[in-house]
């Protein structure tokens, strides 16, 4: 398999141990045609244990999803087998279809085609609120 040898793609490293599956789902990686490796509980000097996701191919990844779910993760872009870019994650201002609004009184609970949009309302506390009903993201 591709572990260790990605030609063109992305390595999401330093994922908090146990979070890789959640990220895999939120990034929609089950729809990917390319090779994807999910490594759990890798031994890491810095973190003790960490998860890693490796994507060998050109799959559109919403970096905001990673920044929201696990801001300490790092992103390495690989081209022709070489590391070309390390992306620092920035707290996203807006999340589109990353979290679902849980408020049963929210318009998103009845109108299925609406995007679930959350915006960062309190950067100091990392609080996101639904643009429709202002419920806090959970």
């Amino acid at each position: 398999m591709i572990i260790g040898s990605i030609k063109n793609g992305m390595v999401i490293d330093h994922i908090t141990a146990g979070r890789a599956m959640e990220l895999y789902d939120l990034l929609g990686l089950s729809n990917a045609d390319c090779e994807v490796a999910l490594i759990k509980n890798a031994v890491s000097g810095k973190m003790g244990r960490k998860d890693i996701i490796k994507i060998n191919g050109d799959f559109p990844v919403d970096v905001n999803v990673i920044a929201y779910v696990d801001p300490k993760a790092t992103i390495n872009i690989i081209k022709d087998g070489a590391l070309v870019e390390k992306k620092a994650l920035q707290t996203p201002q807006k999340l589109v279809n990353v979290v679902k609004c849980q408020n049963p009184r929210c318009i998103t609970s009845t109108e299925q085609e609406l995007d679930h949009v959350f915006v960062l309302t309190e950067p100091e506390n990392g609080v996101y609120r639904c643009i429709y009903c202002e419920a806090q993201a959970k």
């Binding site: 408020n103 009184r105 318009i107 609970s109 639904c130 429709y132 009903c133 202002e134």
Partner: peptide
Amino acid sequence: RHPKEGAPLV
């Protein structure tokens, strides 16, 4: 007027 929160924004 709408029973659901945020409907006027939509």
